[in-house]
Design a protein around this nucleic acid. Structure first.
Lengths: 169, 169
DNA sequence: TCCGTGCTTGACAGGTTGTCAAGCCAAACG
DNA sequence: CGTTTGGCTTGACAACCTGTCAAGCACGGA
């Protein structure tokens, strides 16, 4: 808190006039970061994609776009939630929302008969959700040194090969 | 440290007679947990699998077996490494070793011509490694409530569909 | 018997979060 | 113009945590 206050150019105590405690501060910052990074225009590119497969690819591209922008708050929240019930609730809400968007994309695939056989919507959506998590991005980009482009290409290939029905392809 | 000492039935200060600090204690505990959970017999089931595809499946099954046993130390280490260079080094060593084992399995796939076209060994191994990370297991089993069996089945299906060449199948 | 080893007790410094009381200052208001 | 109000500062404080130190106790082996 002392460091945050110093960077903000206010006294440490002033922070407590705006945020009840450390957790609340993190939560509000993460919500702000979320809402500024995730613009409606970007979401529209998924919703208005001509085909289900295009929406699928756009959804992965959006994740690749968002991850580096949200990595600070996302990992902070992820660490915080181990010791803080409030942070855990916030994290679950956040990821529940992301899972729902994943389900939406997979549902569209299914409706168009593009979901590979052997998969149902909830299961495929959860795999999609888990593979496009912040943590996988962290492992590949932060630790393994992949570029955003490499991440996007390979994760797209992985999920396409696994989840998309293969016809003429 | 106080809580650890209480559970161990010794004084808090006695811990410092055996471990230089909190980080060292975590590191030694995680190494011990690793070496007791990962028996040579289990590793042999991968090395001595009759085919590359069998080795591939055994490797995933081994991960599914290990994750719940190591989740405590693995997540503790993962949280610790954000603020502790020593823990970060330990984590990197640990994951580097796991990545190498992943590469070994993928290399065997490649040698037997079973690696799907479009993948090279390092890239496929890194995807395999990232998908079988502790964090993905956490997300699916701890947060989404999947059973170990479900995890094993679906992750195997995902990685098989993506990484294995499809012939008669 | 003596001595070393492993542990205990108690105290301490330095760091963190969160709370409290008192006061300052500028802008808005009567 | 004086007063009030809101946002901030300063300084102090309690409670907790890590890591260190000094002194002492108990037991087992030489």
């Amino acid at each position: 808190m002392g460091e945050v206050a110093k960077q903000a150019g206010v006294s440490r105590q002033a922070l407590y006039l705006h945020f009840t405690d450390r957790t609340t501060l993190f939560l509000e910052v993460s919500r702000l970061a979320d809402s500024t990074a995730r613009t409606p225009a970007r979401q529209r590119r998924i919703d208005e994609a001509p085909t289900a497969r295009d929406a699928f690819r756009e959804a992965i591209a959006l994740q690749a776009f968002l991850k580096p922008r949200l990595k600070g708050v996302a990992t902070a929240l992820d660490v915080l939630r181990r010791n803080d019930p409030a942070a855990d609730v916030a994290w679950k809400e956040r990821e529940h929302a992301r899972l729902q968007r994943c389900e939406q994309v997979v549902q569209r695939l299914h409706d168009d008969g593009e979901l590979a056989s052997g998969w149902n919507v909830p299961t495929a959506a959860r795999c999609f959700w888990a593979v496009t998590s912040q943590r996988v991005w962290d492992d590949l980009v932060m630790d393994q040194g992949w570029s955003t482009t490499q991440y996007c290409i390979h994760i797209t290939a992985l999920l396409e090969d696994a989840l998309l029905a293969r016809e003429e392809r």
